[in-house]
Design a protein around this nucleic acid. Structure first.
Lengths: 108, 108
DNA sequence: GCATTATTGTGCAATAATGCTACATTGCGT
DNA sequence: ACGCAATGTAGCATTATTGCACAATAATGC
């Protein structure tokens, strides 16, 4: 029906379609973090990290709070974490189906 | 921690990060469809549609059943639909926050 | 053989990811 | 106040990926 709803959803999904960004969100699930705290966890350059954060900010997934030179990030909509649960559910379902494909061969 | 989990999740998210693919999933939520049935709903070429479908198949979101020349698609893990609910939740939360930013200006 | 349905090959334009560098902002110490 | 270190962002070039259409190629049933 309404095309814009799919666009809005896709924008959100795209922001979450990169391992680094998923990791950032995962970290923020434990509480506020600034870029400099996140950086040691990643191999990428800090500028790259900054851009990933920017992508999350642009779609409203994270918001920020300045404290001196640091900018502390937090999840703007903690319900975003439910998506992770959904993802896990799907991945587990897939794993289960894959196992069913493999078992019969194992039996031979 | 484990990098591969973020990769797996990102792969799944990426498959859902395009309006056309979200639309396909939405259609399949109502039941089986073949490409030729989906095509009228989209402006893109059938080959493009086929590739979108292929992307969904590759990550295990949809599976298929051949019936003559037609290949009927269905959601392999219907729990994928929960992700849509999550997305809506996030989008609504954002809309609410945006409204709060706008209201004060409206009052002046 | 022929029509219907779906996939694949190819090329092109647009987008995204990355690192390096330079720059801005802030707070601290002197 | 000044310089300096720490923190984050922006510009740029490079490379990789994605989305797309058109055409060619399968696969199926009649």
């Amino acid at each position: 029906m309404n095309e814009s709803i799919y666009l809005a959803r896709a924008r959100l999904m795209k922001a979450l379609s990169h391992p680094a960004r998923l990791r950032i969100v995962d970290q923020l699930a434990s509480g506020e973090r600034c870029l400099c705290e996140l950086q040691p966890l990643f191999e990428q350059d800090k500028s790259t990290l900054s851009r990933h954060i920017s992508a999350l900010r642009q779609v409203g997934i994270v918001s920020e709070r300045r404290e001196g030179a640091r900018i502390y990030l937090r999840l703007a909509t903690p319900c975003i974490l439910q998506i992770f649960d959904c993802l896990n559910g799907v991945l587990q379902a897939e794993a289960k189906r894959t196992a069913q494909w493999l078992e019969p061969e194992m039996a031979e």
